[in-house]
Design a protein around this nucleic acid. Structure first.
Lengths: 234, 234
DNA sequence: AACTTTAAAATTGTCGACAATATTGTAATT
DNA sequence: AATTACAATATTGTCGACAATTTTAAAGTT
């Protein structure tokens, strides 16, 4: 049961609930990427006032899921390849550091917990090989646990509170079910080992490579798609 | 003439202006760190409605300068040593990567511009040695230029749009006029050299060391202050 | 005197209406 | 026919008022 956002508490205010709802809708593309957001329209749709909607929009903006221009309005961000690669650069940097900090700061209990999670992932993977969805969720679980393990509030906030919503959005929109499940699993294992050894330097290095590999995998896919579409055009 | 925020355009709406005003007030401690923010009071003070104030508060929250709890209200963030060190960890990671990207992506013009800036800093430093203020502003200028040089919107946004407001706040509140002006200047020079050589790996390494040195310098100061206060208590 | 319970006050969340700005569509001009 | 000027429309920004919640104060109980 993968958590969507391990940092946020349960929503109390109606703006909270609308935010949650819109977050899902945007991530899953039900509100299309790049589309304009009409405040009157959405307010009617959710049966709330514009004030409350705007409050929700402000939180979506904090996650970089929408962009706002003064006196013009809000748009859902576009999912461009350039932006995706930019996000991966940031992830490589920040999660690398988070992993180093996790090696220094994680409690023994947290490490035990993370190992248990990996064991379960291996079982799921053995049972339902090829079912990418679970692997994807498992991948997020793993990364969340490492980030939280850094015990660095700034890191946690930027990664879990902001960047990972975008990551999930891209996964949905581009339908990126990683074909490198087995390899990713192995990489996760080694990272946990480094953390368990309290080897911060190695942990950071491995995490950076792990994410860089993922990025290169995407770049390859993009290149493939591009050559395909060129073929068609002929 | 140091820019406070090189990413934001001129404020158009009144909420923009109030945001700018409060940003300065919080950074400079005129609105005390850790203090509660009363919406009715501040709205009266700025002669605006609560809606407009709340819009401004939302932007301050985006910069992590205030924190909000549902049905309770907003507080200015506290300036704790732990949090400061956390920020430095994030900076080390992100600015290191920004520097690597700058080495790859900066235009030749941008590099020329950055070298010119450094030359000017050296003159200012030679003329008014010991005047820390200019050095501090120059330091920010340098870091901003590198970050912008990464040409990575995500990096720029997180660093210039969020983290650097906090950095400036800490500098004000703790009165951290770095006594390592000369050394910092030399480090800046070498970083620019690496960028100029398009050596991303070295550029990242040097920037990380530069920030780590700054962090260690702070840690040393803290330790000093602590031992002093212990002395007093005796 | 310390601790609950309850009522009053204050604060935040939400609403609908109006003002300021941007967008769209139409008519006039070249 | 294309372009500009202007009016009409729609959208966002701002306001003040009310509802929901929390905080404070007071009264009562042990």
């Amino acid at each position: 049961m993968a958590l969507v956002n391990p940092t946020r508490e349960t929503p109390v205010t109606t703006a909270d609930k609308v935010f949650d709802s819109m977050l899902h809708a945007i991530v899953e593309g039900k509100i299309a990427a790049g589309s304009k957001i009409s405040e009157p329209e959405l307010a009617k749709q959710y049966e709330i006032s514009r004030s409350t909607l705007r409050e929700a929009l402000n939180r979506l903006e904090k996650c970089h899921l929408i962009e706002r221009k003064a006196n013009v309005g809000s748009r859902v961000v576009e999912c461009t390849i350039e932006s995706l690669l930019e996000i991966y650069v940031v992830r490589e940097s920040l999660e690398g550091m988070a992993c180093r900090q996790a090696a220094l700061n994680m409690t023994d209990d947290e490490i035990v917990d993370m190992k248990a999670m990996l064991d379960q992932h291996s079982k799921v993977q053995a049972l339902q090989d090829g079912v990418a969805y679970y692997q994807e969720e498992g991948d997020l679980d793993f990364h969340y646990k490492v980030i939280l393990g850094s015990h660095n509030k700034q890191l946690i906030n930027i990664l879990c509170g902001q960047l990972y919503h975008l990551v999930r959005m891209y996964r949905f929109q581009f339908g990126m079910h990683s074909p490198r499940a087995a390899r990713a699993f192995d990489e996760h294992y080694r990272i946990i080992e480094a953390i368990s050894d309290r080897d911060g330097e190695l942990a950071e290095l491995l995490m950076r490579r792990h994410i860089a590999a993922s990025r290169k995998n995407i770049e390859k896919k993009i290149a493939l798609k591009e050559s395909e579409s060129k073929h068609k055009r002929k």
